[in-house]
């Protein structure tokens, strides 16, 4: 709302004279955007006659209930565990393959078409099949998440390794640096921002993997919570896990973005 005031002021003449510093103005607009979403949603829910449309306030109340009953915590824990293990396995294997693809031309020739092809495919399609093969336990969730995470990490790592400045590699070579030392001191550090980009892009994919796997297995996890509540038309309660996932995705994404920006900044400073 403050934003509107600024706007009026600038429209009524004092264009340059009275103005908030642009950084502050940006923050205010940014915050009012988020507030606007909540307000529009609440108003729409209040105007809507359908009992299936619930507003943010009902979701907040439902969150309280689900926390009090311990349900939310129990299901979130199970999702988070599968997500974390899958993330770890997927990003470590993506890292290893990505480094090999980026560094060795023959590996790149062999694997690159397959990796890009699978990256372009809707991997969610194999989830039901994997569950048939691996069962309804946490194992299939972990495998699904790691497959989802693997591709962005591998592709970005490979791209990062290929971007390592030639001069640096040649310098290391001419100082008779051993392969391992070159990796430690040159290749990995300069590929690092790319690797973080890969991780950032894989967060969202990993979350999709967990949730869809939980829709399919329908035993536990936030995905199951969404499914079971929505099937009983408890719309507010089914939105609670969605909000949790939203926040988790947003926080992880922004965190990694910040790490990435910091790295790039430092590089530019050098």
């Amino acid at each position: 709302m403050v934003g509107v005031a600024t706007d009026e002021r600038s429209a009524t003449g004092g264009r340059r004279a009275v103005r908030l510093p642009s950084r502050v103005e940006e923050r205010l607009w940014w915050a009012s955007g988020l507030v606007l979403v909540v307000v529009v949603w609440q108003v729409y829910a209040m105007l809507s006659t359908s009992s299936l449309i619930v507003g943010p306030w009902e979701v907040v109340e439902a969150t309280g209930d689900l926390i009090a009953s311990g349900e939310l915590w129990e299901y979130a824990q199970s999702s988070a565990l599968s997500f974390a293990i899958g993330m770890l396995i997927g990003s470590v294997s993506g890292l290893v393959i990505g480094l090999l693809v980026g560094r060795f031309r023959l590996v790149e020739i062999t694997l690159d078409p397959y990796i890009s092809a699978l990256y372009a495919t809707p991997l969610v399609a194999i989830i039901p099949v994997l569950i048939v093969l691996l069962g309804f336990g946490p194992l299939s969730k972990i495998v699904i998440v790691s497959i989802f995470v693997f591709f962005p990490v591998a592709i970005n790592t490979a791209a990062g390794v290929k971007e390592v400045p030639r001069d640096l590699l040649e310098l290391a070579d001419s100082f008779c640096s051993r392969e391992m030392l070159t990796w430690r001191d040159v290749v990995v550090p300069s590929a690092l921002p790319f690797i973080v980009t890969g991780l950032r892009l894989s967060v969202g994919r990993g979350l999709i993997g967990v949730v869809v796997a939980e829709f399919e297995t329908a035993v536990t996890g936030l995905g199951y919570l969404i499914l079971s509540k929505s099937r009983r038309f408890l719309m507010a309660e089914s939105l609670v896990p969605v909000v949790v996932l939203m926040i988790a995705g947003f926080v992880l994404y922004s965190l990694l973005k910040r790490v990435e920006d910091g790295m790039l900044e430092r590089r530019r400073g050098l």
């Binding site: 359908s50 299936l52 449309i53 969610v124 967060v203 969202g204 979350l207 999709i208 949730v211 869809v212 829709f215 936030l222 995905g223 969404i226 499914l227 929505s230 099937r231 038309f233 719309m235 089914s238 939105l239 896990p241 969605v242 996932l245 939203m246 995705g249 947003f250 994404y253």
Partner: peptide
């Protein structure tokens, strides 16, 4: 954009 949209599908389905 960062929300796993897949999570909302069962809810969209009901609506």
């Amino acid at each position: 954009y960062t929300t796993p949209l897949a999570a909302v599908i069962p809810i969209i389905l009901v609506i």
